[in-house]
Design a protein around this nucleic acid. Structure first.
Lengths: 250, 250
DNA sequence: ACCCTACTCAAACGCTCGTTTGAAACTTTC
DNA sequence: GAAAGTTTCAAACGAGCGTTTGAGTAGGGT
């Protein structure tokens, strides 16, 4: 037909149908909760096809995530390179770094076929407790994240390396949790759908929150701000009103 | 023996051994990944004991979470009442509200037996995708969270109700993700153990991050700050340098 | 002594899981 | 058109799952 090379008809179709079904189901059920039978029946493919084309469940999910995340991290690093090259004496700002993280994600989310939103996949992957995914993310995308961490260190020189690590951890948490879209927002009660689920609005709401958090003065850790006693209810000490005076860490 | 009433020897012991084993295993494997056989063998209890004492796996985890969370939310609401009663014309500040959320958690974490830290349990519970836990948290602790949401609305009157919902969502995310302690912090590379894992230091680092984020000016959403095109790499538009001028929402 | 209740225990039930198998059904190649 | 390679398919495998069952053990009350 139009395809000049090899057998692009049946085999690749099956692979893609499987991967897409796996994506969709992983979003709602996590790794442990997604069975291959669920995937193959949802993809209307024979059960054995997964092991034939991928080699097993672990490898399927690795392939699924790699397909998305490889492109994502490549685009992120390209953007980071741009920002760093633009002014090599003035390191990229926090806002630019967050943009370098978010923008490729948004673009890929829009490019991806409708029905399985890429951003939720991103969030879920960071949150899922399964060791398979945890190792994959750490091994495969740890270096890319490390480059961003170094860049943040330059953008936030007033923070100690340790403080920075924590703040990026908080940042990743807010991001992953929000994207994962656990129904937990129902806890905070009815976040009205702006226009159902607008990912761009979400990230633009998240950005100022994170920037302010990242740039906040470092906490004072050497005195007892939380005088925690053994009792819960009968504590009359209001929160200490001591102000954070210095921004630098010891 | 010393116990005056009923048979407090064998039965309650078994119940507690099961619950503690369930707590410990749930931390590492999540709900789906924790099997009853794992729990009972870890607790050195017969397999059938779970169904006898609790009625099933779902009920076991509900009991496990309720044991901790009932006390937690009760203590939180007591503290919230205190702050609100202290000055009924000046609503509690953001910092006070976060204190009311964190302090009881810290106290319970210290009171709980060593080996199974309560804070990780808290984080995991909010993150776990299993519908059983999600429904439990929403039904049982939704009202308590709602009271805090109302209090935050008074502390942050410049935010629209919708903006506030999102910010509390971000807050909950940073908190849950951090507490859950997925090994994902290894992504951000070696957060050196201050003193192994000091929960109080963690929360005192988290607090200024969250306060700054919550109090950040509201984002401007009506223009294109993220001019996302179909291309990723070839975008030369630097981040818009437009400043946020007004803090109120339309 | 008896019964009744509370609890433990080993074995099994029915089910779903990930994976394997071997024979069909296609394509491609010669 | 036969041979070789590639992909599908139905069936089964063994293991692990949550739950149930029924016999067995203990102890207090009358």
């Amino acid at each position: 037909m139009l395809m000049p090379s090899k057998t692009a008809s049946g085999a690749d179709q099956t692979r893609q149908r499987i991967i897409r079904a796996a994506e969709r189901l992983f979003l709602d059920h996590g790794f442990d909760g997604t069975s291959l039978r669920l995937v193959t029946s949802s993809a209307r493919v024979n059960l054995g096809a997964v092991n034939y084309h991928f080699g097993g469940k672990d490898a399927l999910f690795e392939a699924m995530l790699a397909r998305r995340f490889d492109a994502l991290h490549a685009a992120r690093l390209v953007l980071l390179d741009e920002y760093q090259a633009a002014a090599h004496h003035a390191p990229p700002s926090c806002e630019q770094l967050l943009t370098a993280l978010f923008k490729p994600a948004l673009v890929l989310a829009r490019e991806s076929e409708p029905g399985c939103d890429f951003l939720r996949l991103l969030g879920r992957a960071y949150i899922d407790p399964s060791p398979v995914l945890r190792r994959l993310l750490a091994d495969r995308y740890g270096p890319a994240i490390a480059r961003f961490k170094d860049a943040f260190a330059e953008a936030l020189p007033q923070l100690s390396r340790q403080e920075l690590s924590w703040r990026l951890h908080f940042t990743l948490g807010a991001l992953a949790y929000t994207l994962a879209g656990t129904d937990a927002w129902k806890l905070i009660s009815a976040i009205q759908p702006d226009h159902q689920r607008d990912d761009e609005l979400l990230l633009r709401r998240l950005t100022p929150f994170l920037i302010a958090g990242l740039q906040a003065p470092a906490p004072i850790l050497d005195d007892d701000v939380y005088p925690v006693k053994r009792t819960v209810a009968t504590s009359h000490d209001a929160t200490s009103s001591r102000n954070a005076s210095d921004g630098a860490t010891p």
